[in-house]
Amino acid sequence: MSVIIIMLIGSLLVAGGFLFAFLWCVKDGQYDDAYSPAHRILFDDINTTTKK
């Protein structure tokens, strides 16, 4: 029986971790601007190719 309780606690910890991660993302502003980061990631290439 106790193994179920341990499993339960384990699963709650994992789920809690995800909840925490989600709240953290919201607080950090990851959902405020969905456009810039998606495009920003492409610019690294440009910066290196144009610098000769």
Partner: peptide
Amino acid sequence: VVSSKVNFEN
């Protein structure tokens, strides 16, 4: 300018 960061949606 030290740094600039765009918030495109705003």
